[in-house]
Simulated scan of single mutants.
Amino acid sequence: MTNKEKYKQAFSAIHASDDFSLEVEKMERINKQHKFKTMIASVAACVMIVGSATAAYAADVGGIQRTIQLWIHGDQTETTIQFDGNGSYSMDYTDGEGNMKHQGGGGVVIAPDGTETPASEEELMEQLTAPDVEYEDDGSVWIYWFDQKVDITDKFEKGVCYVKLESDKEILYMTVKYQNGYATSPHRYLSPSEFN
């Protein structure tokens, strides 16, 4: 008799119990439940990752947004400003009368060779902190720069006005053409023929 036949004969009298087959079925069910839970957890993780990426993308679509203090019409004002990265900005603030205001703008920088590039965030901030000339409905003309409000209505001679502005940080020499723009320099008054 071979070993194989001896094993068959020895174990032929042994039968697996019914409890053993139930145990196998139970383990198969637990395995399926575990696989299902793992699959659900994986799907949830994917949804969370995609959702986070979408939120991060959506937050970056409009560019960089921050809240800063700016001088607007001589009043220090808290503004929410957003730079789009393409040379433009938009800004929301509450004016001195409590009205919500929206302002936007932008520009390009022209290189000596004539190529244009969108203004950077620093260049836009320089534009926003530059003096502003306002022509009021009552005929008065005002310059606003930081906390200064200067009435220049009576200072025009032949349509041109020269104003020296001083702050803690700098001195600006400003030449204003009546309703035709202005120019500033930290060194001297510019001639009206040098701009516009």
Score class of each variant (00 low, 15 high):
residue 73 H to C: 01
residue 139 G to Q: 12
residue 142 W to Y: 15
residue 155 K to R: 12
residue 156 F to L: 05
residue 118 P to R: 00
residue 19 D to T: 02
residue 47 V to A: 15
residue 105 G to I: 01
residue 168 D to P: 04
residue 122 E to W: 05
residue 88 S to I: 05
residue 165 L to T: 06
residue 62 G to D: 09
residue 123 E to L: 05
residue 72 I to R: 15
residue 95 D to K: 03
residue 140 S to G: 10
residue 43 V to W: 08
residue 132 D to E: 08
residue 88 S to F: 04
residue 44 A to T: 12
residue 173 Y to W: 07
residue 45 A to D: 00
residue 38 T to G: 13
residue 157 E to F: 00
residue 73 H to V: 03
residue 96 G to M: 07
residue 132 D to K: 13
residue 25 E to L: 14
residue 82 Q to E: 14
residue 15 H to C: 08
residue 54 T to C: 07
residue 152 I to W: 11
residue 136 E to T: 09
residue 3 N to M: 07
residue 1 M to E: 06
residue 29 R to P: 00
residue 55 A to M: 14
residue 95 D to Q: 03
residue 170 E to D: 08
residue 106 G to T: 02
residue 41 A to N: 13
residue 1 M to G: 08
residue 62 G to E: 07
residue 137 D to Q: 13
residue 76 Q to I: 09
residue 26 K to P: 01
residue 71 W to K: 09
residue 173 Y to C: 07
residue 64 I to K: 04
residue 165 L to C: 08
residue 135 Y to C: 09
residue 190 L to G: 02
residue 185 S to W: 02
residue 100 M to V: 13
residue 192 P to E: 02
residue 19 D to N: 08
residue 129 T to I: 09
residue 100 M to F: 07
residue 80 T to W: 02
residue 61 V to E: 15
residue 68 I to H: 05
residue 106 G to S: 03
residue 120 S to W: 04
residue 23 E to I: 00
residue 34 H to S: 10
residue 51 G to N: 07
residue 158 K to H: 01
residue 166 E to L: 10
residue 12 S to Q: 14
residue 9 Q to I: 08
residue 146 F to W: 05
residue 140 S to F: 08
residue 154 D to G: 04
residue 195 F to R: 10
residue 117 T to Q: 02
residue 161 C to G: 01
residue 129 T to L: 10
residue 117 T to D: 00
residue 11 F to L: 14
residue 104 G to F: 12
residue 60 D to T: 11
residue 34 H to M: 10
residue 50 V to A: 14
residue 175 T to V: 11
residue 87 G to R: 00
residue 75 D to Q: 11
residue 171 I to C: 10
residue 142 W to L: 15
residue 190 L to N: 05
residue 184 T to W: 01
residue 100 M to N: 13
residue 12 S to P: 01
residue 108 V to G: 00
residue 134 E to S: 12
residue 159 G to D: 02
residue 108 V to L: 10
residue 171 I to D: 05
residue 179 Q to L: 08
residue 123 E to N: 02
residue 141 V to I: 15
residue 55 A to E: 06
residue 153 T to A: 13
residue 6 K to V: 10
residue 153 T to F: 14
residue 169 K to T: 12
residue 119 A to D: 02
residue 195 F to L: 06
residue 170 E to M: 09
residue 185 S to V: 14
residue 91 M to C: 09
residue 28 E to C: 05
residue 103 Q to A: 11
residue 77 T to P: 07
residue 117 T to I: 13
residue 59 A to G: 13
residue 120 S to Y: 03
residue 65 Q to Y: 05
residue 85 G to D: 03
residue 115 T to I: 06
residue 26 K to W: 09
residue 35 K to H: 06
residue 51 G to R: 11
residue 196 N to P: 00
residue 146 F to L: 07
residue 141 V to M: 07
residue 181 G to E: 07
residue 149 K to S: 14
residue 188 R to W: 03
residue 73 H to P: 00
residue 34 H to G: 07
residue 66 R to T: 08
residue 57 Y to N: 05
residue 17 S to H: 11
residue 193 S to K: 15
residue 180 N to E: 11
residue 148 Q to P: 12
residue 142 W to E: 04
residue 173 Y to H: 14
residue 18 D to I: 04
residue 46 C to Q: 11
residue 127 Q to L: 10
